[in-house]
């Protein structure tokens, strides 16, 4: 549905987005994840047709965004960063204005507006001026405006920024609800957000894609040495566990007179150890009251990725400076 090929954007001499390649299938919810300044908004603006790329192409539904301009705009519902709205207008006035701009016929306009208001739970504020609304409501008005013309693609730049936890949950629920009928691309710098709402993640830092894939794919790449947590009433479980295949390290902590908490670090590339661990404890005639594999944290991968990107940037900056010094000498 959305295909980018060596998509790049320069601002003056600053390369904000550096040859991105990605492919988003129809009906997916995809998260652009990255620290602030990673190039997420620039990328999103190029897909939405606001900023032309300086190199490369991006296609939406098979149409080149730059060349097909208006045809692409009809297929996209776009919520820019911070949900800009005409604050002097009333909510229903604003939606009517947007509906007319998108060429929704008069006979269908009423229904389209009602549907968008209902989906975004805006009925109670439909006649209020936008400037009187809270941040959460404004965000939802922006979302309702993006949904009006029933676009196959929704692009949401930081849809939950500045909202309180309850509002964030509502927006997430709404995004999940919309997922069936739309291909959704959203950006965020908040990790749990993508874990909770997205099928696919594109991690960006310093203008480049550092990792992409489904959550489980990314977890596998991040999860080279999985850890297991085990609570057992065995008094000396370490030796038996250490002898198991694929176990790299075992540590245990006494919790009380009966129970111990054991942390098992597996060797890289070991298949799931949960069953063998339970079996081992059972063989000793003891019981297990808790056993889980620590979900490879995306956070770990995310932090790692940012650190790598920074290190790389520092290195190339260092190199450049050294080069300049060389030239000066």
């Amino acid at each position: 549905m959305i295909v980018a090929r060596s998509l790049s954007r320069k601002f003056g001499r600053f390369l904000a987005v550096d040859s991105l390649d990605f492919h988003i299938d129809r009906g997916r919810v995809v998260g652009f994840l990255g620290p602030n300044g990673a190039g997420k908004t620039t990328t999103i603006r190029m897909i939405a047709g606001y900023l032309p790329p300086t190199a490369g192409t991006v296609e939406v539904d098979g149409l080149d965004v730059v060349r097909a301009g208006r045809e692409v705009h009809r297929r996209i519902g776009y919520l820019p960063e911070a949900a800009p709205l005409y604050s002097e207008m009333r909510v229903d006035e604003f939606l009517k204005f947007r509906a007319r701009l998108f060429g929704i016929e008069r006979s269908k306009r009423r229904r389209a507006i009602d549907l968008a208001l209902r989906r975004c739970s805006l009925d109670e504020v439909r006649t209020r001026p936008i400037h009187q609304l809270s941040k959460g409501f404004r965000q939802r008005v922006g979302l309702a405006a993006a949904l009006l013309h029933q676009p196959p693609v929704l692009i949401l730049d930081e849809p939950t920024v500045g909202l309180d936890p309850a509002q964030i949950r509502e927006v997430r629920a709404l995004i999940r609800e919309l997922a069936g009928n739309h291909t959704i691309l959203l950006s965020t710098h908040i990790l749990p957000e993508v874990e909770l709402t997205c099928d696919q993640i594109i991690m960006m830092a310093r203008g480049r894609i550092r990792a992409q894939g489904t959550i489980s794919q990314l977890q596998q790449t991040g999860d080279k040495t999985p850890r297991y947590l085990l609570e057992t009433n065995s008094s000396k479980p370490e030796n038996a566990i250490r002898e198991m295949k694929g176990v790299a390290d075992v540590q245990s902590v006494v919790m009380d007179e009966h129970w111990r908490r054991v942390t098992v670090v597996a060797a890289a590339g070991t298949p799931d150890l949960r069953e063998p661990l339970a079996a081992t404890v059972a063989k000793m005639g003891c019981s297990v009251r808790e056993l889980h594999r620590e979900a490879a944290s995306l956070e770990h991968l995310f932090v790692q990725m940012i650190a790598d990107a920074e290190a790389h940037a520092a290195e190339s900056d260092g190199g450049r400076q050294a080069g300049q010094k060389g030239e000066e000498a």
Binding site: A48, Y50, H73, R74, Y78, A82, P84, L85, R98, L101
Partner: peptide, 14 residues
């Protein structure tokens, strides 16, 4: 300045 221009030019208007 308010960012509404971004909404305007990403709607199907010339």
């Amino acid at each position: 300045r308010l960012g509404t221009f971004e909404l305007l030019v990403t709607s199907p208007v010339r």
